[in-house]
Design a protein around this nucleic acid. Structure first.
Length: 956
DNA sequence: CGCGACCAACTTTTT
DNA sequence: GTTGGTCGCG
């Protein structure tokens, strides 16, 4: 939420465009507003153009939002800003490499090149598969590392190592390490010693041993070390409450030459592998961009900006901080962030970047200037600006949010209250503060959440305030359920569905844990080996009882229609065709099925996927919960379910923070309230090896068993997560827990009560909304495709081979125009990559003639009551164009000869009704735009009754 | 009150 | 890998 006039703090940030600034912008302080105004201030100077300014955001959607908001406050249009650099680190690095990256690998001694066709692997699953493939061949070609591999439980850990090193700027060259990379690997004894000392302080005024000494009590338990390992007593010392100081040196000094050479070999050969396969990972994008900017002085000067701004600075990694410095041609640097919202350490974000900004600025500058001057400005003067006025939440919520930062996560967790010294307290500008903060717990937590929301909706006690100051009871749309895990969100949606409760999930979904993927896996297993665990799933889904399933499995007397389908599947050679047939059988035509197919196909491109491979792929996907974004829109009046991470930057009048359960939030640890000893103490079998010689692969690293206790492990980030969740709320916060709520739930200073959930089924038969996709059945076209995929008709005929369809889809005419339109509407620079056909020119002309908000690919769902049953029509149109005067729905078609006119009409009409409800005050029009002729045809929307008739005819 | 030993239960987020 | 709970010892 933003205010039209900047407050004095914001004004200071906006006006002070020259020099180095660190902005502590707490939650809801109008950070985006201020930063966009600042950008506008900078580019509105006559001597400055958008391309002189780099504005880095953390997500692509944030970049888009920034652009849109800057347009409102500067003399530049969205088109002109497309040339300016408002983007993520990753996409900026990609641009640099596209333009100048050809020889970048040579700076590391690599012979491969980065070309215009080098892809970026965004899908984690695909990246993992590629890495596995690399490791398999690495293993074969390096028998000398067989011993090391025996110690690894999962080769993917090596990908972690490589990624983490890349995020910290440690890169290999063909014959060593890049710049001072090896120093980082060797470490710094003084720094280590100070960590060591920290955990080695006696506690309770010297009466209690140090944390380190206590931890070392488990040293060597169930292990057999190599003979050179010191004894436990020697490490822990005796009589004192501390570990002897010399132990620090003892564990630090280790010959890691072999380990380093192994990691080096993996790292450098993986880089070669990726380049040969013509792809880069997110991490490698930054790696090569950094190398290029470091080595090529003239390029660095050309690529440098007069102004650099970094948003969400608490989410930056070490390499990103350094990249920002290399991209800054002057000392006009401004970083904006909030350390309290640093929750991405698993993605290598380093909260110290913002907390220790000045020290790191000096250190990184020195590093970069090590051999020659690269940073051409003085870093001496750094100014801090604090934004303290909060436009989102009530003062009660703000005060409460600080409590979250010092709430213990476990019973033994002692929180350092000193963190509050770093907190810049916020003051609310809300006039209305009727905030309730409380907790509800019940064993049926899903029901408890739903029932609590129903208590709140329409309840005057939970009144919320609209932007114009009017107070009203809340609706479903005012509520967001935030969870730490996607699992909980998915379960909650399943339960919500039973009550027809209006609820939509927003964000990544664990694609391989959906019914679609599980049934596909089942059929693949049936094809592979008539496996019971395949048949069991299929039979159960078909409605057989457990007894019946058992009987069928015993007798192997499968239903005839199923064996027929199996034989039919068996004739399809390509796995993609198998998957499509399975989805068709079950009517899975929505977004999930599409994304699964797409994922299979993208793996298929890089290797020939057999059924066995695909089974493995899905099994792994289920195991590690790989996620894929599924397209959803926020409902018109439905509760939003999100993970806390994905809700960052958003705000809701009422926040329900769910799943506050023991052992799940915080992640580790747990504990049981009832202890049952199943065997007498002392009889537990020890996993101890008689001699090391018997098991030469045992690699118990005694040094590491000490060192790991010195690395800080605390719950600070969990508390920050709590902080982020609470500060999403404008008015009310409700915590919910299950049977055994966790320490946060107990310790947070608010009242909690046991719930008594009664969920009422919701009648949604008349309300239009946008939500998760629902499948469509068309009378005369292929089933279940959105308007623009209908153009793929001929691609989906049975006799088209898999390879044909994959290749053909990529180059498919209609899709290309669609992609072009989307990219162009988003302000991306599309001309060089997509050519300049007549169709694209038409689309361009149309888009240029429009001003206002363009919403690309919004999905709408219109529920209809058909013969007493609720049926929904779902649609995706290419563009929604919103101006102050009207709403236009626009869909691109190549020409009039395509099939599926009825379907277009149906979907445009459904869309018309949904948007008419969303915007009751504005006229809504629906039109088709024929790119072959440039004609625009306005459609008379079908009435609800007509739609109902149409749908019931199709159904019967 | 501190210490040690032991068992059992839990282990996420995504550019 | 971390935690909660319990038991026994000093």
């Amino acid at each position: 939420m933003t205010e039209p006039t900047p407050n004095p703090d914001q004004q200071r940030l906006i006006e002070n465009t020259d020099g180095i600034y660190v902005v502590d912008a707490g939650a809801g302080t109008g950070k985006t507003f201020a930063i966009t105004r600042r950008y506008a201030e900078i580019v509105d100077q006559p001597s400055v153009e958008p391309e002189d300014v780099l504005l880095v955001t953390f997500t692509r959607s944030a970049a888009t939002e920034m652009k849109e908001r800057i347009v409102d406050h500067s003399t530049y249009s969205l088109r002109e800003l497309a040339d300016g650099s408002i983007q993520t680190f990753h996409s900026h690095c990609f641009d640099i490499l596209q333009e100048h990256g050809y020889r970048a690998p040579t700076h590391l001694g690599l012979d491969e090149r980065i070309t215009g066709s080098t892809r970026v692997i965004e899908d984690e699953l695909v990246e993992n598969e590629l890495f596995r493939e690399f490791i398999d061949q690495f293993r074969d070609s390096h028998p000398e590392y067989a011993d090391v591999f025996r110690e690894l439980s999962d080769p993917l850990e090596l990908l972690d190592v490589v990624s983490e090193l890349a995020s910290k700027g440690v890169f290999p060259t063909t014959d060593g390490w890049y710049r001072d990379g090896e120093d980082a690997l060797d470490g710094d004894f003084d720094a280590f010693e100070s960590l060591f000392d920290d955990v080695n302080q006696p506690r309770n005024d010297g009466r209690k041993q140090s944390r380190l000494r206590q931890k070392l009590n488990g040293y060597g338990r169930n292990k057999t070390y190599l003979p050179d390992a010191p004894a436990k007593a020697e490490l822990r010392g005796d009589g004192k409450k501390q570990v002897p100081a010399r132990v620090a040196q003892l564990v630090f000094d280790e010959d890691r030459a072999e380990l380093k050479s192994f990691v080096h070999a993996i790292y450098v050969e993986y880089l070669e592998f990726a380049l040969r396969r013509n792809y880069l990972t997110f991490g490698f994008l930054q790696l090569f961009a950094f190398v290029l900017l470091c080595e090529d002085d003239s390029l660095r000067e050309r690529a440098a900006f007069d102004y650099v701004m970094v948003d969400e600075f608490q989410d930056t990694s070490e390499i990103q901080f350094k990249l920002a410095l290399l991209l800054a041609g002057t000392d006009n640097i401004c970083v904006v962030g909030d350390w309290k919202q640093s929750i991405y350490s698993f993605q290598y974000a380093d909260v110290e970047n913002i907390l220790q900004f000045e020290a790191r600025l000096d250190r990184f500058t020195d590093d970069l200037d090590d051999d020659r001057k690269r940073i051409q400005f003085d870093t001496g003067e750094v100014e801090r600006i604090e934004l303290t006025e909060n436009y989102r939440s009530t003062q009660t919520v703000l005060d409460f949010s600080e409590e979250a930062l010092v709430t213990p996560a476990t019973g033994r967790d002692d929180v350092d209250e000193a963190v509050l010294d770093d907190v810049v307290s916020l003051s609310s500008n809300a006039a209305f503060d009727n905030t309730t903060i409380g907790g509800v717990h019940h064993p049926d937590e899903h029901e408890a959440v739903l029932s609590t929301i129903q208590d709140v909706v329409g309840n005057e006690e939970y009144a919320v305030e609209d932007e114009d100051g009017t107070r009203r009871p809340p609706t479903y749309g005012d509520v967001a359920v935030l969870t730490r895990t996607r699992d909980f969100g998915r379960e909650l949606l399943t339960v919500a569905d039973e009550y027809d409760f209006p609820m939509a999930y927003d964000g990544g979904i664990e694609l391989f844990r959906t019914d679609q993927a599980k049934l596909l896996l089942a059929w693949l297993r049936i094809l592979d080996s008539d496996a019971d665990r395949g048949w069991a799933v299929v039979l159960e889904e078909a409605g057989y009882t457990l007894d019946e399933v058992d009987h069928i499995l015993d007798t192997r007397d499968y239903p005839a229609n199923m064996t027929a389908f199996r034989d039919d599947l068996d004739e399809r050679a390509a796995v993609g065709a198998v998957a499509r047939a399975v989805f068709d059988r079950y009517g899975f035509t929505g977004e999930y099925a599409d994304v699964i197919l797409h994922t299979i196909q993208s793996v298929h491109k890089s290797s020939t996927l057999t059924r066995g491979d695909l089974i493995q792929l899905i099994e792994r996907g289920i195991e590690n919960g790989s996620t894929h974004d599924v397209f959803t829109s926020a409902g018109v009046d439905s509760v939003t379910v999100q993970t806390i991470h994905s809700a960052k930057g958003l705000e809701y009048p009422i926040v329900v923070l769910a799943n506050m359960n023991s052992g799940k939030f915080p992640p580790n640890g747990g504990g049981s309230s009832v202890v049952e000893y199943t065997e007498p103490v002392g009889l537990r079998q020890r996993k101890q090896y008689a001699t090391v010689a018997e098991h030469p692969h045992v690699y118990d690293n005694w040094r590491h068993d000490v060192i790991r206790h010195c690395l800080s492990r605390d719950y600070d980030e969990e508390r920050r997560l709590l902080y982020v969740a609470i500060t999403r709320a404008e008015n009310h916060v409700i915590f919910t827990g299950g049977e055994d709520p966790n320490t946060f739930f107990e310790e947070l200073p608010c009242t909690t009560r046991a719930g008594d959930p009664v969920v009422e089924t919701v009648d949604r038969s008349t309300t239009a909304q946008t939500q998760l996709p629902f499948s469509i059945v068309t009378p005369d076209g292929p089933t279940g495709h959105t308007p623009h995929t209908l153009m793929d008709d001929d691609v989906f005929t049975d006799d088209a081979t898999e390879a044909d369809s994959v290749e053909f889809r990529g180059r498919e005419f209609g899709s290309r125009v669609h992609d072009f339109a989307e990219a162009y509407a988003l302000g991306e620079d599309v001309a060089p990559t997509t050519g300049d056909t007549d169709d694209e020119r038409h689309v361009k002309a149309l888009l240029d003639s429009l001003s206002g908000d363009l919403h690309v690919e919004e999905r709408a769902v219109l529920p209809l009551d058909v013969n007493g049953e609720r049926v929904t029509i779902s649609g995706v149109v290419d563009l929604v164009h919103a101006t102050p005067a009207e709403i236009e729905i626009i869909d691109y078609k190549t020409d009039r000869t395509r099939r599926g006119e009825t379907e277009y009409r149906k979907q445009l009409s459904a869309y018309y009704h949904v948007l008419s409800e969303c915007f009751p005050d504005k006229p809504v029009t629906a039109s088709l735009y024929y790119t072959a002729t440039g004609e625009r045809e306005f459609i008379d929307p079908l009435t609800r009754d007509q739609l109902r008739d149409l749908v019931s005819n199709i159904e019967s």
